[in-house]
Design a protein around this nucleic acid. Structure first.
Length: 920
RNA sequence: GGGCGGGUAGCUCAGCGGUAGAGCGCUGGCUUUACACGCCGGAUGUCGCAGGUUCGACCCCUGUCCCGCCCA
């Protein structure tokens, strides 16, 4: 075994072994009665390649699946990818643009062909990248949201909802993305807050008399679509306007003054509001209340249409300026001032969304939401971390109908056909050939496609074969865990719950595990423009700074982004490996909304992998000449060190089990990390050296057995988190006959079976640790070279401690690099410098000791005083507490007792330290 | 306007009723045959601010100021 573990080659070798061996496959065998564990992957979009968010999802999900699989569950992790309607269409259109083409140049059919080509390429790449992360998906079951069986599921769902009256077509005000030229759902619109805008005031002249009314707007161009001005019915200032009209200065229209208490806040601005029913949500509602005309003034691309008079053809923002100027020319402008406002922007294209009246397909949400709320309320579905339930409820209780049609080309076509001879709309599972109303054959399919989340909403059951009654659906639905980012709680999770309950009559999963968003080390969102995107593959395989910079430049990063990249990662990334990346991602608390990924942290876990590697190297080397094997039976050793490590293993496995079950993967991985490094390596391996060299056959045997057992067990425990390196090592560990072919199909360890809690051993060993620690401190603080032996004279009145120090003399000597521990006459320790030459002194609980021939008086005084100060501070707090009668009366007995004991101990320590100081 | 997070060591974060922890960084010493991707020491915090509850608060409550996100 080489001194350094190199993940690159090892990871791909083992991955291939697992995949070709069929270890990822879930069983549909009729006789298989194992409990199932199912998790559907949040399907990555086919918009490019794997990013750190996917790496994070994959890691968490893989840990859950590998853990369950090792626990004996029939585990199914369903992989797949999403066609991601608008997002993918935008990507391909951008490519076309570089060739100087638009989708219209290609035409719908050719364009879709082109997107399919892209899908093949991008989808395949992403699936390969998931494998690089170690994902144990059941690959032959991979689904794409536009596969033929998914199409069938989507059609079935659409038609059923339509037949149930839950899908309908309606004309209403929608969010229009003028760039992508499609409608957007409310969720796809982002509100950009605190934008500095201009509030422009202008006057409408009264129609039949002199005078005017002044209105304010941040969007002057919309006045071309005004069909009313509104005042508050109780506003005394404008009583004279009741029943009057104003005249539109550009289009000549007569515009009524209406009274509306809901729309108008008399305190705000002039107290008069212009009303544009076709381009503003509250004006639209007002229009409905008053039966106002809705005049659309925009074309679909955001230019002004034929209803805007002389402004026709102008872009909406040019029209805004033109309208202002013209109003000025007419003497109707009444000034302007700065105004902070909120702008609606398209989630995808970033352009300012224009409210427009349009006919679209909607899903009626209230009836679907009710059972989805219920399922979380009654605990059928558990959301973790639990705080998210509130957000979930709030959204579902205030849910609006979902606009599901999109004016895109890439997606599931809406299965609706319009008849040219009658009004009937034919909605059908099969492609319609004739009108369902009049039987005529002049029918035309709806041009639109479905919102991409419509198909995603069916994911947990469509991937298992729905609407067919498959074995998989029967066996694996409902799934157990849904692990995903909190950002798609509404987009996806809530909709899956609604759809699952509606179509399957059962929740789609029983736990929702929400994770934070991966950001760069500063906590900023990763973006190509910022140049702060960390590609998981670069982390796994390594990349030089030049490569990182080149990649960022190609992706269109700004100069500041490149600069950041150069200064933050001057040396690029080493090939840290997938296991190190996985451990890093796992180490962040799931409660945190931000995972500020730090390369230094990845490096730390790479070092951990190396530590594990070398610990194993040591263990295997030591076992080389012996026939001792791992047996999956916990040894029953007698020696303290062996008992201690098994007990610590118990504790680590216990914390790991709790963490894995409660979705605290940070705690689970942390417990194993610290056990391996701080206890197994730093103490136990060191302890094993004198034991194995002791020549005592019994001791050697039980130490070998314990060593190999702990190693083999901790590898199994770590396997879900670090699958590759644990396999690499595990394969080399001498094991029982008939051991499984792979660690991934071995049994997940538990404290009760694979370790042994031994509180006495832990307590005793603490004595050793404290003693050794003190010895080491003295050596370090007195600059005693390693070559110089240190003799320790100790004394204790405590029988247990006496026994431990006696029995563990050898280990203490080895670990403390002190030679010769002596039991001392207590009288000598009362005044150490009278009896020992140049002695340093230390005090452990119940034990005191002198170390002759090391002293540098100044340093020793310094050290003792520092210790004394600390002791006095602690003692001060404790004594104050104990002097407080209400503490003694009201605090729990155990707490008071502990304080008493601590204070006694500290007092003794203080005494000893003072004596030592005086004796200097 | 409503809601949700967060403000703890230089940095990134964990802890959440019994006298503050990790990783990285800093610092002193180690060519210790598992590992320098290492080992052994050390330093570092009025736990955002102000009140309150409690025998006791970083932890609970109230208010307040910042920062981020979501919804309207």
């Amino acid at each position: 075994m080489p001194k350094q573990y190199s993940p690159t080659e090892s990871e791909s070798r083992w991955y291939e072994f697992w995949e070709t061996s069929g270890f990822f496959a879930a069983s549909e065998e009729p006789g298989d009665t194992r409990q199932t564990y199912t998790l559907a992957i949040p399907p990555p979009n086919v918009t490019g390649s794997l990013h750190m968010g996917h790496a994070c999802r994959t890691t968490f999900e893989d840990v859950l699946c590998r853990h369950k699989r090792m626990q004996g569950y029939n585990t199914l992790w369903v992989p797949g990818i999403d066609h991601a309607g608008i997002a993918t269409q935008v990507v391909v259109e951008r490519q076309l643009k570089q060739e100087g083409l638009t989708r219209y140049d290609l035409g719908r059919e050719k364009f879709i062909e082109r997107v399919w080509q892209w899908k093949e390429q991008s989808g395949e790449r992403i699936l390969q990248q998931l494998r690089k992360m170690g994902a144990s998906c059941d690959w032959p079951r991979t689904k794409f949201t536009m596969d033929p069986d998914m199409v069938r599921a989507v059609r079935e769902a659409f038609v059923r909802l339509y037949e149930e009256g839950l899908i309908y077509r309606d004309t209403r005000l929608v969010n229009w993305d003028v760039e992508s030229q499609t409608v957007l759902s409310d969720l796809e619109v982002e509100q950009e807050e605190n934008v500095e805008g201009v509030m422009f005031d202008f006057a409408y002249p009264l129609a039949d008399a002199g005078g005017e009314v002044v209105v304010s707007t941040t969007r002057p161009e919309t006045m071309l679509g005004d069909t009313a001005v509104a005042i508050h019915p109780d506003d005394a200032r404008y009583r004279h306007l009741h029943g009057k009209y104003v005249r539109h200065p550009f289009v000549g229209r007569l515009i009524p003054v209406i009274l509306d208490a809901e729309l108008v806040d008399p305190e705000f601005g002039t107290g008069v509001v212009k009303v544009t029913p076709a381009h503003d949500p509250s004006d639209f509602a007002t229009g409905k209340r008053h039966g106002l005309e809705e005049i659309n003034i925009f074309n679909l691309d955001g230019t002004m249409n034929e209803n805007s008079g002389s402004f026709q053809g102008l872009d909406r923002f040019d029209a805004r300026k033109a309208v202002e100027i013209e109003l000025g020319n007419l003497g109707l402008a009444r000034g302007s001032n700065k105004h902070m406002m909120t702008l609606p922007r398209s989630h995808r294209s970033g352009t300012i969304v224009e409210p427009m009246i349009s006919t679209q397909w909607f899903v009626k949400m209230k009836p679907l939401a009710a059972p989805a709320i219920q399922a979380v309320e009654d605990g059928t579905i558990q959301i973790l971390p639990p705080e998210w339930s509130k957000t979930y409820f709030h959204w579902l209780r205030n849910i609006q109908d979902w606009c599901i049609s999109r004016q895109l080309w890439w997606g599931h076509p809406i299965p609706a056909w319009y008849c040219e001879d009658c009004e009937h709309v034919t909605v059908s599972r099969e492609d319609a050939t004739a009108c369902g109303g009049c039987g005529g054959t002049s029918i035309r399919q709806d041009d639109d496609v479905l919102d991409t989340w419509f198909s995603s909403g069916l994911w947990p059951f469509s991937t298992l074969g729905w609407p067919e009654k498959t074995v998989a659906l029967e066996r694996f639905y409902p799934t157990q865990d849904m692990e995903t980012g909190y950002d798609i709680l509404f987009f996806w999770v809530a909709r899956m719950i609604m759809m699952g309950l509606h179509f399957m009559g059962e929740v789609p999963f029983t736990r929702v595990l929400l994770a934070g968003l991966v950001t760069d080390e500063r906590g900023e969102k990763m973006s190509k423009v910022k140049g702060n995107v960390v590609d998981p593959l670069d982390v796994i395989y390594g990349a030089t700074n030049e490569q990182l910079v080149a990649k960022a430049e190609k992706a269109g990063a700004k100069k500041s982004g490149i600069k950041y990249l150069k200064s933050t990662y001057p040396d690029g990334f080493a090939a840290y490996g997938a296991d190190a990346l996985r451990m890093t991602l796992l180490s962040y608390s799931p409660q945190s909304r931000r995972i500020a990924l730090s390369i230094k942290r990845i490096e730390g876990y790479r070092n951990f992998a190396n530590k594990l590697w070398n610990a194993s190297r040591y263990a295997l080397m030591r076992l080389g000449g012996s026939s001792t094997k791992a047996t999956q039976q916990c040894p029953q050793p007698k020696a303290l060190a062996n008992r201690w490590v098994l007990s610590r293993l118990y504790q680590a496995l216990d914390v790991a089990a709790t963490g894995l079950d409660a979705y605290r993967l940070d705690e689970a991985s942390g417990a194993l990390y610290h056990f391996v490094w701080d206890e197994f390596c730093d103490w136990y391996l060191e302890l094993s050296k004198p034991a194995l060299d002791s020549g005592d056959t019994a001791l050697i045997e039980e130490t070998e057995a314990t060593l190999v057992h702990v190693l083999e067990t901790v590898l199994r425990a770590l396997h879900p988190m670090m699958p590759h390196i644990t396999e690499e090592i595990w394969q080399r560990v001498p094991k029982w006959d008939e051991a499984p072919k792979s660690i991934m199909i071995s049994r997940f360890p538990t404290g009760l079976v694979d370790a042994k809690l031994d509180r006495a051993a832990e307590r005793d060993f603490e004595v050793v640790q404290a003693f050794v620690g003190s010895v080491r401190t003295i050596r370090a603080e007195h600059d005693v070279p390693r070559s110089q032996p240190m003799r320790i004279h100790w004394h204790t009145n405590d029988e247990d401690k006496h026994r431990v120090l006696d029995a563990e003399r050898r280990t203490i000597e080895a670990l403390g690099r002190c030679e010769l521990c002596f039991e001392a006459d207590p009288a000598k320790l009362d005044d150490p410098n009278a009896h020992f030459k140049n002695a340093a002194v230390f005090v452990n609980p119940g034990i005191r000791a002198a170390v002759p021939d090391v002293i540098d008086t100044d340093k020793e005084r310094d050290r003792l005083q520092r210790n004394l100060k600390k002791v006095e501070k602690e003692l001060g707090v404790l004594e104050k507490k104990l002097a407080n009668p209400s503490f003694v009366e009201r605090a729990p007995e155990a707490v008071v007792d502990k304080s008493r004991r601590d204070s006694l101990e500290l007092r003794e320590k203080r005494e000893r330290l003072e004596a030592a100081l005086n004796s200097l």
